[in-house]
């Protein structure tokens, strides 16, 4: 196996991520999946939006596009249609992908464009300082929900299955080996693959909700049974939500897989 460092732009270091943030673990798993598949790095295009997770693409030695907030799937669509031999991977976050970019994400899924989307869900807007996202669990504290979030949160995988994504997986950043396998699997799937990666934000989500630092947050993920149980699912950390409230646990694993025609735009006979 190649040293994953050879896939990095070491000249671009140091990186912008905070101590305890699991996004770096996710990136390592991704690079290992690229290495496993022996992809030609000249043909790997990573396309990102705006936010902490989107900044990952700056540090990898591929063709990398750091676009505008939420629009990565639309940039990636043009790229893939114009250059079908590229392996196109979108890196997005929960705010980037589900709030401002929700429309682009569902339409790329509906068309079944051949790309892999890694959505790093840390349940909050990290880069802008810890504001509530569409994934912030009800009751939890963010800088814009000081009394606890009163909005329901998205189940991204259900949304993407509904939109027509042909391969939908949820995986935990706490399980790097599984992530690598899941990512390699997704990149070989013909069509639109969506991977929701439950990551963490100790700096804001962890601090505001008093659930500890990166290690503690990842440990909680790792003891999941069917999904993310403690403490996210039980909302045990949320003082404004009664303990009788239904758990918000979401299942991990491959949630949907089908093979259906890949869309490549209106084009002439090849």
């Amino acid at each position: 196996m190649t040293d994953v460092k050879t896939y990095l732009r070491e000249w671009a270091m140091p990186h912008v991520l905070c101590p305890g943030c699991a996004h770096g673990i996710v990136l390592r798993s991704f690079l290992e999946s690229v290495d496993q598949l022996q992809l030609d790095r000249n043909k790997v295009a990573m396309v990102a939006g705006i936010g902490c997770s989107s900044r990952l693409v700056g540090y990898v030695d591929f063709c990398t596009l750091h676009g505008t907030h939420g629009r990565a799937p639309a940039f990636a669509t043009g790229l893939k249609l114009a250059r079908p031999e590229l392996n196109v991977v979108v890196v997005t976050g929960d705010g980037d992908g589900l709030a401002i970019g929700g429309n682009h994400l569902i339409h790329a899924a509906r068309r079944n464009i051949d790309m892999t989307v890694l959505m790093l869900n840390n349940s909050i807007y990290g880069m802008t300082g810890g504001q509530a996202a569409p994934t912030t669990p009800e009751g939890s504290v963010a800088s814009t929900t000081p009394q606890g979030n009163t909005e329901p949160n998205f189940d991204a995988c259900k949304l993407l299955i509904g939109a027509g994504a042909s391969h939908v997986v949820r995986v935990l950043a706490a399980n790097p080996l599984e992530m690598t396998k899941v990512m390699a699997d997704a990149m070989t799937h013909p069509g639109f693959s969506f991977i929701e990666i439950i990551s963490d934000c100790p700096e804001y989500f962890g601090r505001y909700n008093k659930v500890g630092g990166g290690a503690e947050m990842l440990s909680w993920m790792a003891v999941r049974d069917e999904g993310i149980t403690i403490p996210l699912a039980n909302k045990s950390f949320v003082k404004h939500v009664p303990s009788s409230a239904p758990p918000s646990g979401m299942k991990t694993g491959v949630l949907h897989r089908e093979v259906r025609p890949v869309y490549a735009g209106v084009r002439g006979e090849q």
Binding site: L65, G67, A74, F75, K80, A82, R83, N103
Partner: peptide
């Protein structure tokens, strides 16, 4: 928004 994003992506390709 997406139209021009796709155009930019294609141009980069």
């Amino acid at each position: 928004i997406a139209s021009l994003a796709s155009v930019i992506g294609a141009s980069l390709a």
